[in-house]
Design a protein around this nucleic acid. Structure first.
Lengths: 185, 185
DNA sequence: ACTCATAGACTGAATAGTCATTCAGTTTTT
DNA sequence: AAAAACTGAATGACTATTCAGTCTATGAGT
């Protein structure tokens, strides 16, 4: 694991567990087993770390969601694949999921960061357009559809975490069906 | 406006515009036109203010959503009323909406605060149960339905804000229909 | 109606502490 | 041996919180 990764991991864990205000840079350095100076070698400042974490998670997520992409011509099947994998990713990476949920709306995340993160998901636009062409979807904007489904999944998992409900395959299927019914014409 | 309200308003505005780390208590006091000591008379500390803002918004939201409640026996019509008013509330109160979006997932919000906020929305449970009895809904947990619809609306508005899209009545109807289709059996 | 004593509300400068950031020096790599 | 990576104590700012003192509202006594 590179020092950069060590720092990002340490910061992620501390920030989620204790909150941003209560995680000084020194704690991040300690947990990453790295000197303070090293942190500042790789990152401009604290906010830079937050933004880097955000992008790295979104990149990892995209990588997983779009693996083996582009072979299935069926719009519904593709939908289930994409979002099924997204659910899996977030269920397997609770810390990262919490981070995204918390900072997606925060002013700490710069516009450029948000754009960079979003750009990973351009496949969604293709998928959406295809669905529109086949007259499968309601008449809404692509971004809105993406947001809608992501948010549904996000809060779903959040609720499950809080209520200590286990999301099994059956439940996952219901969730995916709900999302599909929502956008389906 | 009471001092408490002045302080909450000032804090809300500063925190959303500048971020929590960048809003010292002194700035909150200044903006509220109040001495530092007064802030600490009404609130234990900074986190206490955040929690108080959270609850106050949720109370205001609930009040609006459930106004004239309980007269309509039609489950779908009730659904549209509730969530239609919720959309209106958030469209009319961007600052408050942003605050809730940002802190709903934050560890700063205490469990007791979250519970207190949630308890305002018990009408949703009744509504949900009624829908289940009439065999209108998919077989999911009440909390999940509530979360699902709220989140859909939240991110929808967030997306609209970011993409500078105006949400008019037609678009609002589509959003409500999506949410309904999602939970409908 | 008018003191004025008292409680409570209010103030903001001072305190006490925290923490982001730097940099002179050390270690490792090339 | 030169460059690059690394270290962490020291610096310099900043800010949450306190508290000694001031102001204001209340109402009992005249």
């Amino acid at each position: 694991m590179t020092k950069t990764e060590k720092i990002l991991n340490a910061a992620l864990q501390l920030i989620i567990e204790r909150g941003l205000e209560r995680t000084p840079m020194s704690k991040i350095a300690d947990k990453a087993e790295v000197g303070m100076g090293t942190v500042y070698k790789y990152f401009k400042d604290k906010e830079d770390i937050i933004n880097a974490i955000y992008v790295s998670i979104k990149e990892e997520e995209a990588q997983l969601v779009f693996v083996n992409n582009g072979h299935n011509p069926d719009v519904r099947a593709t939908f289930m694949n994409y979002y099924g994998r997204m659910i899996d990713y977030f269920l397997d990476n609770t810390l990262k999921f919490n981070f995204i949920s918390q900072y997606a709306f925060s002013p700490i995340i710069k516009t450029t960061t948000q754009k960079k993160a979003m750009s990973q998901f351009y496949h969604f636009d293709d998928h959406y357009r295809k669905g529109l062409e086949e007259n499968l979807f309601k008449d809404i904007k692509a971004e809105h559809m993406t947001f809608f489904v992501f948010s549904a999944i996000a809060y779903w998992i959040k609720a499950a975490n809080e209520l200590h409900i286990k999301i099994d395959e059956t439940y996952k299927t219901v969730l995916l069906q709900m999302a599909w019914d929502a956008i389906k014409k």
